[in-house]
Amino acid sequence: MARQAAVNPEELRAALAAVEAWLRNESEPAPARTVLAAAVRGSARTLAADAPGGSVEVRVPPFVAVQCIEGPRHTRGTPPNVVETDPRTWLLLATGLLEFETALASGALTASGSRAAEVARWLPISRLG
């Protein structure tokens, strides 16, 4: 995967603020797809910038997949270390409203491979105010 440019921290905060009410209360109307995409992509790309490398792939379909964490780089086929979740769960993790282990135990997140759980060390990415 191509290396992404760093995400502007102010843009990330604004993108996360736009989905905050929905993250804190699931009965709130879901954000527009473009608003949700901006928050998911910005937070995942920030993770990739904060923890550069190609050892673990983080997938948040349908919006983004990034590689992160130093170590052996994956280049073809199914990566050996994958973290995958839905957009809302990812944003809850990225903002500190949900713990990695809790999401994993509930089945809202899958983590395969010996290094996948290292993503937890880099969370949250940006706490909500």
Rank of each mutant, 00 (worst) to 15 (best):
A94M: 07
P61F: 07
V83G: 06
G53I: 01
A105F: 03
V60Y: 01
S112F: 02
C68V: 03
F63K: 02
L92D: 12
F100N: 06
G113S: 12
E84D: 11
H74E: 12
A94H: 08
G53M: 06
G96R: 07
G113V: 07
A105S: 12
A65M: 00
R88I: 00
L104T: 04
E101R: 15
P62R: 10
A105K: 13
N81I: 04
L93A: 13
P62H: 11
V58C: 05
E70H: 07
E70C: 01
S106Q: 14
A108N: 12
A94G: 11
L97K: 09
E84L: 03
A111V: 01
L93W: 09
P87G: 06
L93M: 13
L91K: 00
G54C: 11
E101M: 09
P61R: 14
A111L: 02
S106Y: 09
V64T: 13
A103G: 09
P80G: 13
L93T: 07
A105E: 13
T110E: 10
S106V: 01
G71Q: 08
E70K: 09
F100R: 05
A111Q: 03
P87A: 03
A111K: 06
A94E: 10
A65D: 02
T95G: 00
P80L: 09
A108D: 14
T89C: 13
T75H: 15
P72T: 14
R76Q: 13
G113D: 11
H74L: 02
N81W: 05
L92R: 15
G77D: 09
G113L: 10
G71C: 04
P72R: 15
F100P: 03
A111G: 07
G53F: 03
C68G: 04
S106H: 13
R88W: 00
E57R: 14
T95K: 01
R88V: 00
S55H: 11
P80R: 13
N81T: 09
V56L: 10
S106E: 14
P80H: 08
W90G: 06
Q67Y: 05
